[in-house]
Design a protein around this nucleic acid. Structure first.
Length: 215
DNA sequence: AGAGCGATGGCCT
DNA sequence: GGCCATCGCTCTA
């Protein structure tokens, strides 16, 4: 995004409104595509951090790669709850990953959010992501599931919370105005970093988008 | 540009 | 005890 447009977005009063519960009632594979182009908004201590979703992965109940494949456990309990809630899990002893719970209660499915385009609160993102002391580029802030959780100021506290109201919610594709999204730009591929059921085309991302984790 | 690898700790069998 | 929906660094090209 060009710097002029960027500063306009940074300066405007935040008009973003939460999507309703009905948005999350689509089948999980459909929801994974519907989430592309929507805005993840986190309001914390009076400031908003916003990223636009550019890459997702679907995890289905009958899918061996899905955490819920073997049924509900203490960790996966929220995946079996109502759709439109946050599921965050701890991975590799270091990182948290953010999912949108989908499917009706009793069915354990979710969509992993893998990458965001930074939209608002970018300097805050850079501060939270600056572990090594180097200044990260905008492209490097949210191009991975562990990275975006850090950049957005999220963590285990958000596990299980309702995404249809602040402080953490999604806003529709039109939030920046009409024509800011073209569904024909959605590409499909295989999921990243898994071994089981690796052949399923359950990854979705935007063509030529510089903020996805991997082309 | 891409392969290899260590860090690090919870979860589940 | 093995696995893991990751990341950042180093080494080779």
């Amino acid at each position: 995004m060009d710097p002029i447009r960027q500063s306009k977005i940074e300066n405007r009063k935040i008009p973003f409104k939460p999507l309703p519960r009905s948005f999350y009632q689509a089948p999980t594979l459909q929801l994974a595509k519907d989430l592309l182009g929507t805005f993840l908004v986190h309001r914390s201590r009076g400031v908003s951090t916003i990223g636009r979703i550019v890459e997702t992965e679907a995890y289905l109940q009958d899918d061996p790669a899905c955490h819920a494949y073997r049924g509900s456990t203490p960790r996966t309990r929220v995946m079996f709850g109502p759709p439109g809630h946050a599921y965050l899990y701890f991975i590799y002893g270091m990182y948290w990953c953010f999912n949108v719970v989908s499917a009706p209660p009793g069915t354990g499915e979710a969509v992993l959010v893998r990458a965001l385009e930074p939209i608002h609160g970018i300097e805050g993102m850079r501060r939270r992501r600056a572990g090594c002391g180097k200044r990260l580029s905008d492209k490097a802030l949210c191009n991975g599931p562990g990275k975006l959780v850090i950049a957005m100021g999220m963590g285990p506290r958000q596990n299980g919370i309702d995404l249809t109201k602040p402080p953490l919610f999604l806003a529709g594709r039109a939030a920046l105005g009409p024509d800011s999204f073209d569904p024909r730009h959605i590409l499909t591929g295989t999921r990243i970093g898994i071994n089981k059921a690796a052949q399923h085309p359950y990854r979705f991302y935007l063509r030529n988008n510089p903020f996805v984790s991997k082309r």
